[in-house]
Design a protein around this nucleic acid. Structure first.
Lengths: 201, 201
DNA sequence: TATGCGAACCGAGACGGTTCGTCTTGACAA
DNA sequence: TTGTCAAGACGAACCGTCTCGGTTCGCATA
């Protein structure tokens, strides 16, 4: 009886792996989520379907790896955010950069497709948080802690709540096409959040 | 040449319409989004497939009507939110009620399915905002304006931004399974937002 | 060192099963 | 008489599995 659950990683074709992730990103950016099928990815990557099914459990898992490869080209490296010493400046720059990513099809299209899969699949959501969201949030919290030490945020401020209040409204606008992604919006968002969590005077 | 784009509304079967919306809601709550197919809805509603395709352009459009029928059983009536005179009390109650809806499968499952369709289809997103989100947001803004008049919010507070900062973090947690929906979370959210938009002293 | 062998990968695509969206049929109602 | 209705046949697309040779790798034997 052969166990089919664990293919031999050491013999995996790196060329095929990269071609599949690249094909998934290109296809979703060019033709949209609706036309992103396993068959289309395989054809585009010049790869047999079985090669995809062997290494990924679902289309969403392929997308997760695609987005991961896109967001940290430099791998296994801890993310560090700019620190000018002024939290308002840094957060506004960070939020503007995030909005710019949402506006760039090459980045936004795969991320939107992944978000759809995540919404429908809680297990994929777990993987996403562990491998993509958590490292990014940790970097942001580092920057917020630095601001706390500098007396620019209340000492007892809830950093997770701050990140939610900053990121969620922008992400919501982008995902549901429900509002602007412009920098004056993100600036006002940062202003409001800093007002809520400024040190007591 | 017969124009197929405008079927005769006056001859539409009300029984079939209701059965289809009900079947969509029941199916998605029982078996999940992945198994929600047009064929399954038709079978469940004891309806021909063509009856669905005749009246709705997509599965997402059916879901939109399903959710709409669910959220305003009393139709075409302007929504009015409770007003105890204290904005903090009212907002905390509103947010707890919203979190409770997210936790109830009969309501949450169709809404989650609709959200997925909306994320993939900007035109459906437009319809959703016009027919579902906008009326609810207008009711919330009425309550916020009343709080402004009572001096509980800054006179120049951005009401749209307030609603974003309240709703988006909660919705994000629910959609992406990324955090708690508990009432102590929504309470802290309300506290933070009110801190940011309290009147200048 | 060179040769041979088995295992697991690879691309390609056949296969049966679902679902899609369209089309046809005959019944029924305005 | 006309248009909607339930039912379901139809071809196309995609699913996930399986099969087929071809290739690559590790290991054993000479």
């Amino acid at each position: 009886m052969t166990t089919r659950s664990t293919p031999d990683t050491s013999r995996r074709s790196e060329r095929s792996r990269k071609a599949i992730l690249q094909a998934a990103r290109d296809l979703v950016a060019e033709t949209g989520y609706a036309k992103l099928t396993i068959e289309a990815i395989a054809a585009r990557a010049k790869v047999g379907k079985q090669t995809i099914y062997r290494w990924w459990p679902s289309k969403g898992a392929v997308l997760l790896d695609s987005v991961l490869a896109l967001s940290q080209a430099d791998q296994d490296q801890d993310i560090t955010l700019p620190d000018t010493g002024d939290i308002e400046t840094d957060l506004k720059a960070l939020m503007r950069a995030t909005a710019a990513e949402f506006a760039a099809p090459a980045f936004a299209a795969p991320l939107r497709a992944l978000t759809i899969e995540i919404t429908a699949d809680p297990r994929l959501a777990d993987d996403y948080h562990k491998r993509v969201a958590a490292p990014m949030e940790e970097a942001k919290k580092q920057r917020l802690r630095s601001a706390q030490r500098a007396g620019q945020l209340a000492a007892d401020a809830d950093l997770d709540l701050i990140l939610d209040m900053l990121y969620a409204p922008l992400a919501q606008h982008w995902m549901l096409h429900s509002g602007p992604l412009a920098s004056d919006y993100t600036d006002r968002l940062v202003d409001a959040v800093l007002r809520a969590f400024s040190p007591r005077t």
